[in-house]
Design a protein around this nucleic acid. Structure first.
Lengths: 216, 216
DNA sequence: GTCTATATGAAGATAGAC
DNA sequence: GTCTATCTTCATATAGAC
């Protein structure tokens, strides 16, 4: 947790006056992020945010005109950073099964992390009220992952390691198999599965893909 | 929907004994269900429920001691009924691919229905506050489906139609492949996929299972 | 049980001093 | 910009008549 460093998309070299401002603004966003992720939009009060940020409520309103804007700003910021900027998924590995296994582990770890679960819950709950955040979330997270894996599968197909006619679809199948059950169980608050169970499921998903898309 | 049938000046023709009480309670539950599914727990006011049920707010409190109890009652009731009592998934078909395709269609249709999406969103959003509903939802919905499909795969394996060592896992893989992307896109408010796209994905998922678990 | 009317409190947002 | 104090709205919940 503890997202302490929040700056906009650019480096503002003008750090003369807004020095204090920045620090308060950062504290507010940090506090608000925690509150929203913990109890959701509706149950988070501006009082609670101000209190956690060690700031008066009026100061919060000096930086964000209302609760919706604060929420939107935070989720947008979170979408840009939470999924990793570069995502160095080096998929040049010659062993397809090993590469898929590595991707699978990374995916499952990310997906089942407490922060990802909280973020997902928040976006799902509020996307009807804030249609934009659903779009942003999907584009920043799942979409990019699908795209990366899809490109890898395309390349693997080109080299004859696999026989995939629709890489995008195959990528969805692989990630879907990994997500199955476990994510749903966690998001609904059921007891988490054992580590070795997850390991087995990743291996099984890889095996299915390898068999189903084996070059004839 | 809108079960709210209010007999105006005391003309209860066909109804005999528990007329008044039941009818109000039913109207309240029906109205509350609609409200909760539409805007969620937090954004639903008891005033709105009373108004939609054509009942005073005090009457609502005469039947349910508070908002939480009303919510819990409704979701529990919904979990029991929404997923179908019998679920006549007749999986005795000799053609495995056809059977899986049928299951796939049913699953996808249910999953992408407006009501299922609303219910899912509600449960996901509120399960931290109401831990019990997450459990109930999973047991009544996904768990039963997994179990049914798992039993079918077990039987198919026994008859030599497939070679599945872990039916539960394979069931999860199949349903996970079907759920991939589309459900997420819908739950996040993105544009729905074309019908033919869904059809293709179901066929592709069936094909993967058939190839991966083909008897050697 | 059901209604009208109201108590109580919480939360979003603002006024005005510094 | 930042604070304290306050306004205003609205939602939960209840009181009391019928």
């Amino acid at each position: 947790m503890a997202l302490s460093r929040i700056s906009g998309s650019g480096e503002s070299d003008l750090d003369a006056a807004p020095a204090v401002d920045r620090s308060k603004r950062t504290a507010i966003m940090s506090a608000a992020t925690e509150c929203f992720l913990e109890v959701g939009f509706g149950a988070t009060s501006m009082d609670a945010i101000a209190q956690r940020a060690h700031v008066s409520k009026a100061t919060v309103y000096a930086h964000f005109s209302n609760k919706e804007e604060l929420f939107g700003t935070i989720v947008a910021e979170r979408c840009r950073t939470a999924f990793g900027e570069g995502s160095p998924l080096t998929l040049d590995h010659p062993d397809v099964a090993a590469a898929l296994t590595a991707v699978g582990h990374r995916f499952v770890d990310l997906l089942l992390s407490a922060e990802a679960l909280a973020m997902y819950r928040l976006v799902v709950a509020e996307s009807p009220r804030f249609p934009e955040i659903g779009r942003q979330f999907y584009a920043a997270g799942p979409e990019r992952l699908f795209e990366q894996l899809s490109q890898y599968l395309t390349e693997a197909g080109r080299r004859g390691w696999l026989k995939v006619e629709e890489p995008r679809l195959a990528a969805g199948q692989f990630l879907g198999m990994l997500k199955a059950e476990r994510f749903l169980q966690r998001i609904l608050g059921l007891a988490p599965a054992a580590e070795e169970t997850l390991q087995r499921e990743i291996d099984a998903a890889v095996a299915v893909i390898m068999r189903a898309y084996a070059p004839s």
